[in-house]
């Protein structure tokens, strides 16, 4: 009897000691099953042809780099991120500073958050009414431009990204602005700094921590703008907004697993190293 009790006790202590791993286990198990193991398979596939399963070395990689559609998609995706990220950060920062200047205005930020709650699919109809040749935008300008079929499409994409994400970023900036202690700002004022000077010399440097996080989250959300584009213009949109997500999607529907596996490996490598780089940069600056 005593022996059995001791055994249970010992086991219990063991359970407690390993609790941290037991808690982690379900999640890790799922990630292993759904991502790690199959991704290993994808890496292996990227060195073989899917047709015969023959080992072809870097051949698939070479083919992908020569693929014009892939190049176009990479170019467009990078261009999109380079344009929309700074715009988003800047506009929402300006708004945040204005709202922060008048606490009573805080209630207006709800209007900016609303687009976030709207499913992408519900907005397709409005987009069509706005941007078709006979749409409202052309009506106000009295023109007949095919916005979704010309280079304007890119800017509509940028606009819809801003529309959706401005509230999110605004809330983040506001949180950052509120974290700056009033004493520092007062001190700057006493020292004779003008509003603009104290903004650039006190407020901005203090927002650096928030800025890093905002960049990461905005980047994450920028990949989701694909939804609106896809819903409005389908699998083959105007060539300026043919994104990496489109090409992956089309490979998938065409069962082009050779290209897809190479694309997945390259994208994962790229985003992974980008994360590491940001991490290094940020850690270096703070500590």
């Amino acid at each position: 009897m005593k022996k059995a009790y001791n055994y249970i006790l010992r086991n219990k202590a063991g359970l407690n000691r390993n609790a941290k791993f037991l808690f982690l286990l379900p999640g890790l198990l799922g990630i292993t099953i759904f991502i790690f193991v199959p991704f290993g398979d994808v890496v292996i596939r990227s060195f073989h042809t899917s047709l015969t399963g023959e080992f072809v070395g870097l051949n698939n990689y070479k083919n992908l780099f020569q693929n014009t559609a892939f190049r176009l998609a990479v170019h467009n995706t990078i261009r999109f991120i380079m344009v929309c990220l700074p715009l988003l950060l800047l506009i929402s920062l300006l708004l945040a500073v204005m709202i922060n200047g008048a606490p009573k205005w805080e209630k207006y930020k709800d209007m900016y958050l609303l687009p976030m709650a709207i499913p992408a699919a519900t907005i397709v109809l409005v987009w069509k009414m706005l941007f078709e040749k006979q749409g409202f935008l052309n009506k106000t300008m009295e023109t007949h431009i095919d916005f979704m079929g010309t280079e304007y499409a890119f800017w509509i994409l940028v606009g819809s990204y801003l529309w959706k994400n401005i509230g999110f970023t605004l809330v983040l900036w506001l949180a950052g602005l509120k974290n700056i202690s009033r004493e520092i700002l007062e001190a700057a004022k006493v020292d004779g700094a003008t509003g603009i000077q104290s903004f650039f010399c006190v407020t901005l440097p203090n927002l650096k921590g928030s800025m890093y996080t905002i960049v990461v989250i905005s980047l994450l959300n920028s990949f989701k703008s694909f939804r609106e584009v896809f819903l409005v213009s389908g699998a083959y949109p105007q060539e300026d907004i043919y994104l990496l997500q489109h090409i992956f999607n089309n490979w998938f529907t065409n069962l082009d697993f050779d290209k897809m596996s190479v694309g997945s490996v390259l994208s994962a490598l790229f985003i992974g190293s980008l994360c590491m780089l940001l991490q290094k940069l940020w850690n270096g600056e703070v500590e």
């Binding site: 991502i35 999607n249 998938f252 694309g263 994962a268």
Partner: peptide, 30 residues
């Protein structure tokens, strides 16, 4: 606190940022 926590954390961040399309084939295979 345990060994490898930082690495695990970084991995989770990367997985969070990866767009769906990158892991689409993996998920499909499983």
């Amino acid at each position: 606190n345990f060994r490898g926590k930082k690495v695990l954390f970084s991995l989770y961040v990367i997985l969070m940022i990866l767009p769906f399309q990158v892991t689409m084939l993996s998920k499909y295979l499983v």
